[in-house]
Design a protein around this nucleic acid. Structure first.
Length: 580
RNA sequence: GGUCCCGUAGCUCAGAUGGAUAGAGCGUUGGUCUCCUAAACCGAAGGUCGCGCGUUCGAAUCGCGCCGGGAUCACCA
């Protein structure tokens, strides 16, 4: 209906349809109208006071409202000029019809599209280090990356989920040396990462007393690089047992990667990078190392080869970009990696540009903040790190306590399933709800608060919708099936209209979230929709009305809300529940 | 020190092309369950948008300068 207004305005004034469209906004209060057109810009153009313009436009467009055959009069109820604003009040019945019709047509995938058809998008995220604990910090990249991947998939892109494992580097030399001295096979089988962490810490403690260990580790890594069988075998074991443990977590949060090529995979391709760079004359010597000068980008030189001739992570990342472009010819190559690596990616992308990569802006660093703890209490007895699984467990346990209390009728398996979804969903939500570049401040108090701006609130709203549909009587359900416009036109109450407005804006929030790699933009919209629905739910009887048509209409609205919330939650990676 | 980011209610955050009276949630406080699930709803209190100057008809938003906090600045990733 916005389009009809934009069209009418562009006919009435000297602005194109698109210009008008972008100027249209929403008034701050619903009683001021549904759509507003500010006349300031126009005032500059035609050199007339904006208040005067608003008044003249008001007179002009009001004439069209008298013609009942005019589609404009079917969309617009009345127009008011307030100051420099021209405020349009939509016809509520027409609006309700249109929103419900669109929602039904979109089905379970509101806002989905095929805009990305034939385009491949690589999203690199999670990327834990082998032999290191998967802690709450990894949760950020993991959940943010998955949500971004889902957003693009929803718009029809061919999304490739990459997990760039940290499975290469001198620390593996240390691990090999440590394992030979202090490794315990039984402990490794029982809790692999815990055991590997133990010997790694021990290595550092011992190296303080016995510095030769460092050299030994370096030699071990060199042998590993050269493919020595014995070292390779150990490395492979460390990698496998770590992955098995990571997979438990990935299964739990239902995240699955298409590609698990870690750094070791790209390390093999680094000679090619060195050749290419030197062929293009980009490689220069500096302090014994080989670097690419990036002064024209305002960046420090990018180190390619260390003074001992070995490669560095930048070299491997460049190899990865080249490889990925060759194999996938990607439309975007997205790195979901923390803010501290901003400089690193600026360098990599600058080198790609120097190498003459077509459209280098296809490479994107989606940076995010740090996970911090609000209080000292937020840690385990073992140390200052909290495993992601521990955080999820705490969330689920808290959810279970509430579910058990409110649903004594459910059996254990059901309680388990529901609690798991709520608890895990609550944790994921806290990672996604704020702008990604902000640090996340975790406190047990907030993470276990399931009221207000939380996933459980959204989930609870879904269960209300589901419950209504379960309890509706057959006459109403039968009427609901027909989805008639006449019924939809009954949804003209303030609270009903507010809900409809939120539904309309969901698809817009999806494209905004995609454009900015910012799932929170969608999440906030979901939250507003849920709040609008809950207000409506309290103020307005849905099943307890005698009028079957009205009941069916309101139920249709609840259905539309449920579809929208579920779709958004799933994109966020949060699995909805039917009751809680 | 150079570069970049941040500073909005007691706390956590929105305010993504400069527009109407700066908004949510938590917390505080007062109400609402014989009635579609109270993980809910309704009301109240709470702000010199870090400070100053500037651009503009109009600035939380843009520019400059301060103050405070953070990240980063090659042989780790």
């Amino acid at each position: 209906m916005k389009d009809i207004i934009a069209e009418a305005l562009s006919e009435a004034i000297e602005l194109s349809y698109d210009d008008v469209q972008t100027l249209l906004t929403q008034p701050p209060q619903p009683n001021m109208g549904d759509i507003a057109f500010p006349c300031f810009q126009l005032a500059k153009k035609i050199r007339k006071a904006p208040v005067l313009i608003a008044g003249e436009l008001n007179d002009k467009l009001n004439l069209r409202l008298t013609d009942s055959a005019d589609p404009f009069s079917r969309a617009v109820e009345r127009i008011e000029a307030v100051g420099a604003y021209l405020n349009f009040f939509l016809r509520r019945d027409t609006f309700a019809e249109e929103v419900l019709r669109a929602s039904i047509a979109a089905g379970d995938r509101p806002g989905a599209s095929d805009e990305g058809k034939g385009k491949t998008i690589i999203v690199e995220y999670s990327s834990p280090n082998i032999a290191k604990p998967f802690h709450v910090g990894h949760g950020f990249s993991t959940f943010l990356g998955e949500a971004i991947a889902n957003l693009y998939e929803y718009a029809g892109y061919n999304v490739q989920r990459f997990n760039h494992l940290g499975d290469y580097g001198t620390q593996f030399g240390k691990l090999i040396v440590a394992w030979r001295r202090w490794g315990d096979v039984e402990a490794l089988n029982k809790a692999p990462i815990q055991e590997l962490t133990r010997i790694y810490i021990k290595f550092h403690d011992e190296a303080k007393i016995e510095p030769e260990l460092e050299d030994e580790a370096r030699r071990a890594f060199t042998r590993l690089e050269q493919g020595s069988e014995e070292e390779m075998k150990l490395w492979q074991t460390f990698r496998e047992v770590s992955l098995e443990e990571f997979d438990d977590t990935y299964d739990r949060v239902n995240i699955h990667f298409d590609n698990m090529n870690g750094e070791s995979f790209y390390a093999k391709m680094t000679p090619e990078v060195v050749t290419l760079l030197s062929e293009k004359g980009l490689l220069i010597e500096s302090e014994g190392a080989q670097v690419v000068d990036l002064e024209d980008y305002g960046l420090n030189p990018c180190l390619i080869l260390k003074n001992d001739g070995s490669t560095i992570y930048a070299t491997r990342d460049i190899a990865a970009v080249l490889y990925r472009d060759r194999i996938w010819n990607f439309h975007r190559n997205i790195y979901v990696v923390g803010i501290p690596q901003i400089n690193h990616f600026n360098q990599i992308f600058a080198v790609m540009e120097k190498l003459g990569m077509p459209d280098p802006e296809r490479n994107v660093h989606v940076a995010f903040g740090t996970v911090r703890f609000a209080d000292g209490v937020f840690s385990t007895r073992k140390g200052n790190i909290v495993l992601l699984d521990e955080l999820l467990d705490a969330g689920v346990a808290h959810a279970r306590a509430i579910v058990e209390e409110s649903h004594p009728d459910l059996d254990d398996a059901e309680i388990e399933e529901i609690s798991e979804r709520i608890g895990v969903g609550a944790v994921r939500y806290t990672y996604l709800a704020s702008g990604r570049e902000r640090d996340i401040l975790f406190s047990w108090e907030d993470i276990l608060d399931y009221e207000g701006d939380t996933a459980p609130y959204l989930l609870y709203t879904v269960t209300r919708c589901a419950s209504l549909l379960r309890k509706a009587d057959s006459a109403v359900l039968k009427r609901l099936e027909k989805h008639s416009d006449e019924d939809a036109a009954l949804l003209i109450g303030d609270d009903e209209q507010k809900v409809l407005k939120e539904i309309v804006q969901f698809p817009e929030s999806l494209s905004a979230a995609r454009k900015h790699y910012e799932p929170s933009m969608m999440i906030r919209r979901l939250m507003q929709l849920a709040r609008a629905f809950n207000t409506f739910y309290h103020s307005t009887p849905i099943l307890r009305v005698d009028d079957t048509a009205l009941s069916a209409a309101r139920l249709a609205l609840a259905q539309a809300v449920e579809r929208t919330l579920k779709a958004g939650l799933r994109i966020a990676g949060i699995e909805p529940v039917d009751r809680m």
